[in-house]
Structure formats: C-alpha cells, structure tokens
Nucleic acid binder design. Sequence first.
DNA 1: CGCCGATTTGATCGTGGTCAACAATAGTGG
DNA 2: CCACTATTGTTGACCACGATCAAATCGGCG
Lengths: 247, 247
Amino acid sequence: MWVLTEHLAVESLTDGCSDCAIRTHSICAALDHAEVETLGKLGRRRSLKAGEPLIWEGDESLLVANVVTGMLKLVSSTADGREQVVGMVYPTDFIGRPFGATSHHSVTAISDATVCVFSRSDFDIFASEHPALEHKLLERTLEELDRTRKWMALLSRKSAKEKVAIFLLDMAQRLPNLNTGSVREGAQPKFELPFGRPVIADVLGLSTETVCRQLTALKREGILEFPTRRSIRIAQWNMLESVTRAE
Amino acid sequence: MWVLTEHLAVESLTDGCSDCAIRTHSICAALDHAEVETLGKLGRRRSLKAGEPLIWEGDESLLVANVVTGMLKLVSSTADGREQVVGMVYPTDFIGRPFGATSHHSVTAISDATVCVFSRSDFDIFASEHPALEHKLLERTLEELDRTRKWMALLSRKSAKEKVAIFLLDMAQRLPNLNTGSVREGAQPKFELPFGRPVIADVLGLSTETVCRQLTALKREGILEFPTRRSIRIAQWNMLESVTRAE
DNA sequence: CGCCGATTTGATCGTGGTCAACAATAGTGG
DNA sequence: CCACTATTGTTGACCACGATCAAATCGGCG
C-alpha cells in the first residue's frame, strides 16, 4: 500500500504540533503558537488502515478530526441501503460535524491514513472561544459546499466516460502534492492510484465494469497507459481534457 | 402566481428590521437589536419575479442575501453547457458566497420572491466584526452541506419514481410552513406547487416527460390526485412514503 | 507452477432520454 | 361568452447508456 507522507505516520501529538506536517495548511493555521499547543493537548493521533471506518452514518457526532496523511471517503446511504460516496477527503482537510447532533454520513479510510482526532464537545468549546478558527472553518466549509455542488452536477449530468476522465485529471493534480496540502501546480503525467477500480466506481456512482470499459477505451485511443494495475500514465493530457467536455 | 407571505412583499428596509418576517429565523437572529439595525442599513430589499436571475455562475461574487419570501434555485453548469440544480433556497435561507472571489453557481427565482441584499464586501467586514453572526452562518453552512450531500446520494442512486415521491413529500412538508421558516410539523395532504413540471424535472435531474410519466403512474395507483395542474393531493401518504424506498 | 482476488471482456436487459404528436389549460381579444 | 392562440402537460415510439450476470484473463505471491 502506498502511504502518503509516510515519514510522519507514527508522530505523536505529545511531541507538540509545531512540527506537524499540516500545521500551516489545516484550519490550525488560524491559530498562533500557544493556541495550537492548547488545541494539540485536546487531540490525539490515530492511524487507520485502508478500509477502516472512522465515523458511522447516523451515529451521534462524537469526534472531529484533521487529516494528516492518506485519503478517506464520505458515504451517504439512502433509506433502502444503496450507497453513494458524497465526498473525498485529502490531507489537511477537516472531518466531522461540529455543533451538530449526528453524523449524516460515514467516514472511511480508502488508503492507510493518519488523522488528528478531537472530541467534538472539546472542539466545539475551543472553537467558540477562537473566532479566527471558526472563520477558517467557515471558509473551508463554504469551499467544500462549492466543491460538493460541482460534484453533484457531475454525478447527475456527465456520461461514464466523462466522469472517468474528470476523476483522473482530478487525481493527477491532487495526488503528487498531497504531502504539501492543496497546492496544484503543473500536473504529473504519471501517478499511482492509492486504491483499485471498485473505489473509483464507487466514487463516480458507476459499476466497476463500466469504469473498466471506459479505461480500456481511453487506452485504445492512446490517451492513457497502464504500466502496472495501479499506475496510470496520461499520454495525451489535452485529449483527456477534451473528453471531459462531452464526446 | 402564488406569492409566499405576500403581505410583506413591498416592505422596505428603511422601515427597519425589527418587524422583518424572518428577523428571528434568519442568520440575523444571532444579532441584538442595535446590531440588526446596523446591518439593516447596509442592505436593501429586492423583489424578483419568477424566473429572474439574481446571481450568475462565474461572476465575481458581489452580493449576498437573505431570502424573505419565495423560492430560488441554485444551478451549476458543466463545461459543456448541461445544467443541474444543486440546491433549493427557501425563506430565511442565506444566499451567496461570502469570503470568496467568484460564485460557482447561478441563483434564480423559481417563484416570485423577495430578498434582502447586501454587498459582499460590506457583509464580509460586518461578519468579521461579529463572531456570533459568523458562527450562525457556519452552522447553516454545515447544515446545507449535509443536505446537499444527502441530495447528491438521492440524485445518483434513486430511480425516477423514487425521486418524484421524495420530492413531493419534501414539498408537502416544507410548503405549508414557508412563511414561518423551517418548521415542519404535521404534513398537509394537499398543496399548491409554486412552479410547473419542468422545474421539478430540473431539480430531480430528469426530463419533463419522465416526471409526467411517474406522476400519472402514481395517479393510476391511487396515491396521488391532481384537482388542478398546480395542486397535488396526496391520497395515500403511507403508500407514497413506501415508494420512496424502492419499488 | 498454481492459486486467489482483482480486472477485463462479453451478452443481455431495463431505465430513462429524445423526438414527435397530441391534449388540456390559461390567456387574449372580439 | 366564445373562439383562437400560446403555453404547459401528457402520451407514444424508439434508442442509448450503463447495470447486471457470467465467464475469461491477468497479476501477485506462496
């Protein structure tokens, strides 16, 4: 399993937050040194293996967290059991539902991951006393809402092929820089997927088979290459981008 | 056209906010009397006719607003022109994108509506000086994010029939109480739609024809009745609820 | 080399979109 | 009040996309 920024995987919070990899990219950036230390005392590091759940849908909202390394998915299930991934969580992202009674979706690791966990009530109180933190959280929540709405339009209006293309471009831009936060400069034409086809299907609201067919179609067209199962090389970036906007 | 809480449609902000219909249900509830008056001086009332746009997708984010009466839709378009409704806005809801450069979706009235508009920069500054307001806004944004994610699961996983059923139940619970905010007690079995089939289709990510077919199907099954085009009677509430969870 | 899970390919089917015709309603002016 | 028109809603025929089920193939690992 490919671990993102693995050199920090065993770091403990008792070491303090000042050398935290995401210190300046998470919501903690809103706090000064002393405040971060105070908040740090309320939290603890937790490691998750790929597939391990952190929060269950419908449970009382007991914890919130910052993602330090790895990726997680948010899943919402309809009343009759069908599920849909409603969000992907990257390092520096904030997880959980402050100020709320229950979690409306589950949170599960899709690669090995490390998170910095707080009890929700502790966090709520701390946040209320630190408007700058709440402001940062508000900004992030607004951004997340924008992203979620865009994704929603994608899910309901894009064809399978477009979805796959968009997913790959997204991944290619996000993955190489995961350890440094949300920076997305020049794209890497080759990258390793931290998970398999079923997860892609899950995220895009497609079946595994359909994802496969689209991937092989893109390979046949010379747009993609697969050196190994988990690695993807984007041979024709521009072509892939044009697939994005209808066929 | 059916105007929600029409008695306030011409109220002017120069009358002050103290008798505003949504004074205690919007984010303004976080403010005390003096603060509300200060904020009120920054805003102005604006009436919108059904179909009239308030904010264009991609535009610089210049204004934010509270919805006083009526309903609006948020629309996100994909790069190639296809559109999807990504949110419905009810009275007391907050519109717009504070602290952000651009609007990521358009906002358009789907019934006649009244909104209380602020310049985004004015609002940003005022909000920064009033943590209680920001806190309220954060709570609302978190709720909206939860709702949006639920809706996302619905859009990608539910069948046409289920979507229509869910939409009607939602409407039936929200509509009768629109003027009093988000209260949703006992459901009214009959109500008037403030818009036509095309808008329903739009919201559910379906074609008008499909919405029609599902509605007539539900009529044939004795679950619904249509006294007029715009009014809907839910003859079998329980039946409709069970349609909601697969067929 | 042989096994197991992940991926790929193939065949079939159902849902919902599209295009086209038709019906019903709401407006409009005589 | 009644044509007449424009708009909105309804129905039908057909088709494409993607789901599903089943089978084949690949790749990693003992």
